[in-house]
Design a protein around this nucleic acid. Structure first.
Lengths: 336, 336
DNA sequence: CTGAAAGCGCTAACAT
DNA sequence: ATGTTAGCGCTTTCAG
């Protein structure tokens, strides 16, 4: 068994409180401090955070629930958050709910049982029912990518509608009129926003919407492949396509390759996320780039603020909206 | 404050042991079971795993320490492991050590303090010093991608040497003689093995090794870009290049694009990992594919076996070696 | 500055 | 089958 504080108390002849005080930054006589440190060394003592957590009712652990770890956007966000949280002594338990509402709810319950100090969630269930129970604990929740009515908490979002509008306008300005979109699942907030941006850009330009140019993918690579094939097949006159997340962008490129379509001569493309992938494409892809690292650090910062300063429930909750950026490649053709 | 077992004992008029027994699969009279369930419902009771962990000396938590979460190979492994571990009630704490030995050691200490039941590690420190302390707890360790002398534990590896040899032989059989390699960091085990495979393939074919064709990257995208540029510049006669991980493969493709090199006419390429990326390249990339999901599930399975069956320290430790596969694309030219 | 003692929420004997 | 009780390792009064 691992050494305990009792062991080191016995060994040094000191009382428990002194040892505890040593670990919690209290004042300990120089002579005793040395004795304690020797004992720690010899006994290979390591604080038991579990016991500490039980006593202090704070586990120094944050639960993170995301739809797919295997999605670059999510993975990048987690990397950034984990970095800052751990540097503040917080552990991160990541739960991948596979874009499944039931699993998402179970993940939250799992985290409640483990008494995490806070939850960071990129929600699948737009109703937020899964969060109600955690909300009752009074511990902080920070949402990524979506605000939820009825759950009072901070949210860090991206201006998805503007991102999509900008991308589509880019096509329009270059003379495109038959512009396809590979959107996300209808139930997903970000997907709805991006779709709204598409509509708005067309509307502002007075271009009529054609149903067959709109395709709802599922944010996966295979979905991207299928959607691209479908769009191309249904719309021989389509000159441009906007793809609304990274996985589907990769899928669309696969489709383009496998169909032998030339970019941008036969088809102009604007993708989403992952600048490096865009650079690796030939020709380089124009993409909408989200500030992933900024989101990650912002989310972690907000969470820490709640945790350390004990931000009260009564206070106002923030909704931060970060801006995206279009990184130009050579995948958009200028017509005429 | 959250409800406790005491609360539900009071509410039902039952004793603590009965409640505990209810939660741990013991026999409880039908009438009481109903009362208990009602109380749970009304009080929104959720088991406190922290307290349980303190008592049972088992946190049902596994620590995972990896070099880069932001590396697709790692992210995929984690996804798979987390899936099976959580379905068995285990939480996963992931620590990204940024390929830094000091951070790796700190991560392990962090996990020791949190009393995780086991550690899964894709080690950066080839000496394994960081694991010594955890080893003393007698709890299980499973290593990914590398075996470490002196640390007795199971390991799940990939046959890297053969993987590289196969790839290089593929070039040789198609008539290539000036074959470059973008290897990994010299200190990394998998990188050494892949490099060894390169040497072996050349040796078997009687092709002399030329130093300038060997480049040590750092397993990052930028490293891949730089390495490709360097190889091309130093070796005007190079006709093929083998890239030894995914990130550098993407980097190499970026380099190829930015230098305007035609694949496979001017340069043949074999990459590593990520079939989907290979498909998205134009032309489709030939790659060495690792069985990531297989590794993930195997690692998780081994860990669970230790945890549930209490596999003894005295027993033999396994070293499993999984095979890779070459997925052919159109990026390898046949010379004359 | 240090020691003694209570208790966080749970499990696991041991009684009944 | 159910109740009682003693800790698990720590923090935190409260005394001294």
């Amino acid at each position: 068994m691992a050494a305990t504080m009792k062991d080191i108390a016995r060994r040094t002849g000191l009382g428990l409180a002194t040892i505890s005080s040593y670990f919690n930054g209290g004042n300990v006589r120089e002579k005793n401090r040395i004795k304690i440190e020797e004992a720690i060394e010899e006994l290979h003592y390591e604080v038991n955070e579990v016991a500490r957590g039980l006593k202090t009712n704070a586990t120094k652990t944050i639960g993170v629930v995301i739809p797919e770890l295997n999605n670059t956007f999510c993975a990048e966000i987690i990397t950034g958050m984990e970095d800052v949280l751990r540097s503040h002594g917080y552990a991160t338990i990541v739960c991948d709910c596979r874009t499944d509402k039931k699993l998402e709810r179970e993940a939250i319950e799992f985290l409640i049982r483990r008494r995490v100090d806070g939850v960071i969630n990129m929600p699948v269930d737009e109703e937020g029912n899964h969060l109600k129970k955690f909300q009752k604990t009074g511990k902080p929740i920070v949402l990524i990518d979506r605000k939820i009515q009825g759950i009072s908490c901070d949210s860090v979002l991206v201006d998805n509608e503007k991102a999509a509008e900008d991308a589509v306008r880019q096509f329009i300005e270059r003379g495109h009129r038959y512009i396809g979109i590979i959107g996300g699942p209808k139930g997903i907030f970000t997907a709805q926003e991006r779709m709204a941006g598409y509509y708005r850009a067309l509307e502002k330009a007075g271009i009529p919407v054609r149903e067959s140019l709109i395709c709802h993918g599922d944010y996966t690579i295979q979905g991207g492949v299928r959607s691209l094939e479908e769009l191309v097949q249904k719309n021989p006159d389509m000159t441009a396509v906007f793809v609304t997340n990274y996985e589907m962008t990769m899928g669309a490129m696969i489709g383009v390759n496998e169909l032998g379509i030339q970019i941008p001569e036969q088809l102009s493309v604007i993708g989403f996320d992952n600048l490096q992938f865009a650079r690796a494409c030939n020709p380089k892809l124009t993409i909408v780039s989200q500030p992933t690292d900024g989101i990650a650090r912002e989310v972690a910062r907000i969470m820490l603020e709640h945790l350390e300063n004990g931000k009260k429930e009564s206070e106002e909750f923030f909704t931060e909206k970060l801006q995206t950026e279009i990184i130009e490649g050579k995948s958009v053709n200028t017509l005429k």
